[in-house]
Each structure stands twice: as C-alpha cells, then as structure tokens.
C-alpha cells in the first residue's frame, strides 16, 4: 500500500514530537521529584552545620566544602594540562601519527567508566604515592577523569578561531606565542571555559571515583591531605545505608541546583563573549 508523502510526514512529525516531549517530561519529573522531596530539608542550618551522628543530624557543610576542595584541585590541575595539550595539538604540530594517537587516547579516556578512574586513583594516588584517602587523591583522580573533556572542547574552540587572525598577527610581526595568547586565546576562550565548566559539573556530580580516592569521612577536611566526603558521596551513603532519606534528598536537591547554576553560568559566559565579539 502506498502512503502519501504528506501522511508519512505527519506521522514522522508526531513520533518525533512525542519522543522529545517524553524526554523533557522525564527530566522535568526527576528534577521536580528531587526538589519537592529535598527543598523542605534545605534550611539555613542544614547548609551551615556539619553532619552529626553519621549524618542523621546536623547539616552538610563539611560535604559542601569537600566538594569545593576536590573540584578546585581537579580544575587547577586539569585546566593547564588540558588546554596545553589542546594548543599543542592544534598550533604546535602538524597532523601526524603522533597527534592521531594523542587524540585517540583522549577520546578513549573519555569513554572509560568513572569507577575505573576510581580504581586507578586508589592504586596510584592513594596507595602508590601514599597520599591516602584525601582531598588531593580525589582531586587528582578527578583531574585525570575530566582531562579528555577539557582537551576536546578546547581543541574544538581553538580550531574554530578563524585562520586569518593568526595570519594577521604573524604579518604584524607577532611571534607564535604572542599570536596564540593575544589573537587566538581570546577568541577561543568561551569554548575553553565551557569545557572547564563541564568538567566542574562532572567533578561535583561524581561518586564512584571519589569514594575510592577521597574516602567518605564525614568530618570537615582541615587540609588537602585529609579524607573528605563530597555531596554526591554523602547523598549516596545516606540513601544506600538508609540513614536518612530526607537528608539524602536535601543533598541531592542542592546538587541539582548547583549543577543547574553551573550550566547556566556556562551559557552566560559563552553568550557574553559571542555578544562582545559582534
């Protein structure tokens, strides 16, 4: 039987539309569910007190601080390495076997499950380098994990800078380094920033890799060598061990809100730069 093209088009449109709506609804449902369950717990005390009696009482301040510290270590370590690698791949070398290997490795790294990074971090940072379960071990592991994201997004951003900026800069007597820092980097910055912010998002949300490397101490870390429990880990333990579902939801809600703001910030940075360069 022959179906008229206009009919197939209508059917296709309907199916695609339904699927998109389902996806959006699903996301909306999850977020609303968590927020409804969690927001009543999000009191000032909850945010500003340390957990007490394994998390049954008190707040989640130490886990917020731990999250910040682990993320900070990861970003400080991963950004220069990631952006540096991206610049090397795009500006300092021609396409060759070596660049293809580096690129392939970065892509493969991005596909490795986080628990594997956790195991690596545990063996390498915690045991071999004797850093123990600590903010540092957790942060370094996360740095390795987000490196491929930062490399890829930075590379895309650098490649999208028009070749003419480089030519002009060279023609005006700019050196390679000056060309990169003053002509290429400003234009690539929004893309690079997006990669870094995506990395922050992954650090904030990560559980498996952090639990194996930063530990799950509920106490406020006093230094980078202290064990720590990030919000995601806290939320996992609260729920997993049935300590307090309501506190688990509270933490989850805060996590969702933070991730929402991180993404919002990423968008704003990009838009501002795009607007500025017009």
């Amino acid at each position: 039987m022959q179906i008229r093209p206009t009919t197939t088009e209508k059917i296709a449109k309907f199916i695609i539309w339904t699927i998109s709506i389902l996806v959006v609804l699903l996301l909306f449902f999850i977020v609303t569910f968590i927020l409804i369950k969690g927001i009543p717990t999000l009191t000032w005390e909850f945010l500003t007190q340390n957990p007490a009696s394994s998390g049954r009482e008190g707040g989640i301040l130490s886990t917020i601080v731990s999250t910040l510290l682990v993320t900070m270590v990861a970003i400080i370590v991963a950004t220069p390495f990631g952006v540096g690698t991206a610049f090397y791949l795009t500006e300092f070398t021609h396409e060759s076997k070596a660049t293809r290997i580096i690129r392939f490795s970065a892509e493969s790294l991005a596909a490795i499950p986080s628990i594997v990074y956790g195991l690596f971090g545990f063996i390498f940072f915690v045991i071999f380098l004797k850093l123990g379960w600590s903010v540092l071990s957790g942060g370094l592991t996360m740095a390795v994990m987000i490196l491929p994201t930062i490399i890829r997004t930075s590379e895309e951003a650098i490649l999208s800078v028009p070749a003419q900026y480089r030519e002009v800069s060279f023609s005006l007597g700019g050196s390679k380094w000056q060309t990169i820092t003053t002509a290429v980097l400003p234009s690539a910055f929004p893309g690079i920033a997006t990669g870094v912010i995506l990395g922050i998002g992954r650090c904030v949300a990560e559980t498996a890799a952090v639990i194996l490397t930063a530990g799950s101490s509920i106490h406020m870390p006093n230094s980078f060598f202290d064990p720590a429990r990030t919000m995601a880990v806290h939320f996992y333990i609260m729920a997993r061990e049935g300590i307090s579902m309501e506190r688990a939801y509270g933490t989850a809600a805060l996590l969702v809100i933070i991730i929402f703001f991180i993404n919002l910030m990423a968008n704003m940075i990009v838009n501002r730069f795009v607007a500025k360069s017009r």
Binding site: P162, Q164, S171, L172, G173, A183
Partner: peptide, 18 residues
C-alpha cells in the same frame, strides 16, 4: 618577525581582530 615589521600586509578580506 623583524622582516614582517618591515614588510606589512593587507589581506583580501578586511580582517580586524574582534
């Protein structure tokens, strides 16, 4: 670098930096 400061260039498409 010093050569290019002595021999300047203007390109086909106007290409100011942003």
């Amino acid at each position: 670098v010093s050569l290019r400061t002595r021999v300047g260039m203007v390109f086909q498409k106007p290409n100011p930096f942003p």
